[in-house]
Amino acid sequence: MKIMNKIVIGVILVTTIGATVVSCSSTKKGYSDIPDSETVVAEEGFKLEKSGAQLWGETCNRCHIAPSPADYNDTDWETISLHMRIRANLTEHESKKIEEFLKSAN
């Protein structure tokens, strides 16, 4: 059991260090090309991003039935979103988009 304990501690350290390095590293390039306006428009046109409503349906239903936006006001949804982000281990992007949807639809 001592060996298993050391392995678990080792995995925890590697996970912690890895998560810290990845989350703290900048994703900005040192030098970036200046895109021409046509490229930017074309890229945005093909950008497929899920709406907050879609994420609300997919994410909340993983554990419980997705809540009705009308049941809480904007400030309540801010608190609930932060709580659920941590409790259900959601990404920042998911929780922000869902919060925006709930606040816009209540």
Binding site: M1, K2, M4, N5, I7, V8, I9, V11, I12, T15, E58, T59, R62, N89
Partner: peptide, 26 residues
């Protein structure tokens, strides 16, 4: 006690999640 869980949602619609948890003490 030391422990943790790794969860992977392999599909973009988040329909599936597979998780592994460990918990250990000497």
């Amino acid at each position: 006690a030391y422990g943790g869980r790794l969860g992977l949602l392999p599909f973009p619609d988040s329909s599936t999640e597979i998780g592994f948890s460990a918990y250990s003490t000497s």
